[in-house]
Amino acid sequence: MRRQIQLNTHISAKFNQELEGLKHSVLTMGGVLEQQLVNTLVALQEKAPSLAERVALNDSKVDLMESQVEQECMRIIAKRNPTAGDLRLVMTVSKTATDLERIGDEIARVARLVTLNKIPDSDLVFSGMLDIGNRNVSMMRATFDAFARQDDKAAILAHQQDHDIDRVYKKVLEQTAAEIQANPKEISQWLDVLWAIRAFERIGDRCKNICEYVIYLTYGRDMNSASMKKTVKKLLK
């Protein structure tokens, strides 16, 4: 029972605008976050602490956006009493905003690592980190794309990308563990690296959540529920 939500068909033009604005705000936030992530990766690669610093500072902007989106959601619920698809949209946006804010936090965590110049000298781990980061960028893009278009198939495909991220994450984790065993004296530095890798992995999970919201938005059901299994399989083909 797939249903596309038509945002511009309400009798109230203002309501249309508000919902459109809400959706747009998520994409704006997503755009900002994408930029943040890319900037972080650049800072990481080129060991540019000033850029990373800017990213870390920018995070408060994301926080502010999140609170604005939450407020708007609340306002719309209070004033418009949205129902059905509209209600799912507002709830989805609200939850997405929370996830986006968390993503922002994770990015900021990595950025702060870069500012502290605590980048490991192990090439293997370093390239592994960049790998995860780039994968994250692509997954984020796919996720926002799916969200923007309310595209269930794209959302599931984006959802699948998390497997790769997890795989790479495990690999990098093993490599890091090996490095730590190799020089246990630098453990505190490695711990920070470990956190950064973990943060990248968390970004993937958050994107996965957002993909699930998109599915929820179009089907009104949890993606992991038994009743959705068949649909998901069909879409994956």
Partner: peptide
């Protein structure tokens, strides 16, 4: 000041 939503 960043504003996501226009309020008049």
């Amino acid at each position: 000041m960043l504003k996501l939503f226009e309020r008049d």
